[in-house]
Amino acid sequence: MFAAADMLRVFQSYRGDAVVIPGRGARHWQDISTRPSRDIPLGDPAMGGHASFALGLAMAQPNEKVVLFDSEGDLLINLGALATIAEKRPRNLYHFLMDNECYATTGGQPVPNAKSISYAGIARECGYPAAYAFEDLEEFASNVEGILNEPGPVFVAMKIVPEIENDPIGRRQRWQTRTLEEVLRDVKKELGVPS
């Protein structure tokens, strides 16, 4: 396992102009990203939808590289998204999965069959042309540039150290610096989409 923030720092070196949907890594990503106007930290609109959102964005903007940092709890809710992504085969979609084996924001309860699922295996069998799995940061670091130069859709499963939150939601510190409306306004401007 490796830390989400360390992984995101490595990724940042190769990010280029990619549009990044940081998912549940957003808290760290906002301090690392050098292109915040091309980031889409959505918070949690509804659990289970990040992969489909990324697919829609990638299909709408085929000339933009779209990178998603998904989480295993989110993906498990709508595993069928993998089949749709595999069918549509967006060449510009890079689907990273942060697998911490638990629901960290609710106190760390394990996801179903937490330690035994091969998410890369599921993605591959759904039809992703390429799928990788990393448990070691150095191995991830030496492969990520090559992965980002492959045609998508590519799936990258990573074992991530859980950062468990136990405080009631009302007591948690708000880390977002932009509202959702501002996030969407900024990225649409970057993409040349009228608001």
Binding site: L55, G56, A58, A60, L191
Partner: peptide, 20 residues
């Protein structure tokens, strides 16, 4: 774009819409 569960349709549509 075929989905296998209707809820996915709305997040997919949101992504398409943000992308113009």
């Amino acid at each position: 774009i075929p989905v296998s569960r209707e809820g996915m349709a709305f997040s997919t549509a949101a992504g398409l819409s943000v992308g113009g």
